[in-house]
């Protein structure tokens, strides 16, 4: 019988490779490497390149000329830049309606009524449709001559102004078009969240006397915190990088009244060959997003710690 008090003989060290000894360190690195390489090549490198480009004057071809902060100087004196920035803030604020509307629609759709599946799929629809199509559809809606809205209000004796041609209204016309798919997106997030709410818990709350608004605020919304967080994050990013709808519906016009930073950057780079100037706009947009992304990451890390 083996003597329990004697120490076990350590096994003779067998021949080991460097890899087998450091498996736990190397394997994850190997897995991360391809993604990291791609990310560096297509994201990080262009960011650095853009930032450095913003200190040059460059037409896209030919020599680059170092101009220091000159591009930024021009930018801060450029009324179009300020207009675009203000418009981006409009986008940001109004886009926050999307999570609210999405929640309301999700609550409405989260019922067991005959035909609700069909209604649900109709609400999913704008999310599936490309932004280009959304832009075109809304452009037609707004058309003062033969558009849907004009046709609807005509019997009331009202005449629709040309929204997208108006300096005051064009931005809001585009934002409303953007809200449509964004709301659908938030609604999907909330529907998924609602799906995971334990129905017995809602019943328990009903027995506890919580109804309507109080039920929503005290019981349902706290369960939807994760969905709300994601919805707001995605919406804010969507508002800051709004581009396609502006390009399709107004091209920033009339007179830059509906311009946004992303489109102004594109405009400068592609049509005016002011690469350095465009790069400085991109850098500013990047900085604005950074503030927000840092906040986002901090929240995320905090939440992850909380859930351990």
């Amino acid at each position: 019988m083996t003597d329990m008090t004697s120490y076990p003989v350590p096994p003779k060290p067998r021949h080991t490779t460097f890899y087998s000894r450091n498996k736990l360190v190397i394997t994850p690195l190997l897995f991360i490497a391809p993604a990291f390489a791609m990310f560096s090549l297509f994201v990080i490198y262009p960011i650095i390149q853009s930032i450095s480009l913003s200190f040059y004057e460059w037409q896209g071809i030919g020599p680059k000329k170092w101009v220091g902060f000159n591009n930024y100087d021009l930018l801060f004196k450029d009324p179009v830049f300020w207009k675009a920035l203000v418009n981006n803030i409009y986008w940001l604020v109004l886009f926050l309606l999307a999570p609210v509307l999405g929640l309301i629609i999700a609550l409405f759709l989260n019922q067991k009524v005959f035909g609700i599946r069909l209604v649900k799929s109709l609400f999913f629809f704008p999310f599936v449709v490309s932004q280009i199509v959304v832009g075109l559809v809304f452009t037609w809606f707004y058309d003062p001559a033969f558009g849907l809205i004009a046709a609807l209000i005509e019997p009331l004796g009202l005449k629709l102004p040309s929204i997208l041609a108006s300096e005051d209204w064009a931005t809001f016309g585009v934002i409303i078009a953007g809200l449509w798919p964004q709301t659908a997106y938030c609604m999907i997030l909330y529907l998924t969240g609602l799906n995971s709410v334990n129905p017995e818990m809602i019943e328990a709350a009903r027995l506890d006397g919580a109804r309507g608004w109080r039920l929503l605020v005290n019981i349902v919304l706290p369960q939807l915190r994760a969905a709300t967080f994601i919805a707001i994050v995605v919406t804010v990013i969507g508002a800051l990088r709004s581009f396609d709808l502006v390009a399709i519906m107004t091209e920033g016009g009339p007179y830059n009244s509906s311009n946004v930073l992303a489109f102004y950057m594109y405009d400068n780079a592609i049509f005016r060959y002011r690469m350095g100037y465009a790069a400085s706009i991109a850098t500013i947009l990047f900085l604005i997003m950074d503030v927000y992304i840092v906040w986002f990451l901090m929240r995320l890390l905090k939440n992850e710690k909380g859930s351990r």
Partner: peptide, 24 residues
């Protein structure tokens, strides 16, 4: 009612869970 799944409110403490109905 006491449910099979307990149906506690996950975001509330035990004291808040128990007092919710009374607070309502």
């Amino acid at each position: 009612m006491v449910f099979q799944s307990y149906a506690l409110y996950p975001h509330m403490t035990v004291a808040q869970n128990m007092s919710f109905g009374l607070r309502m």
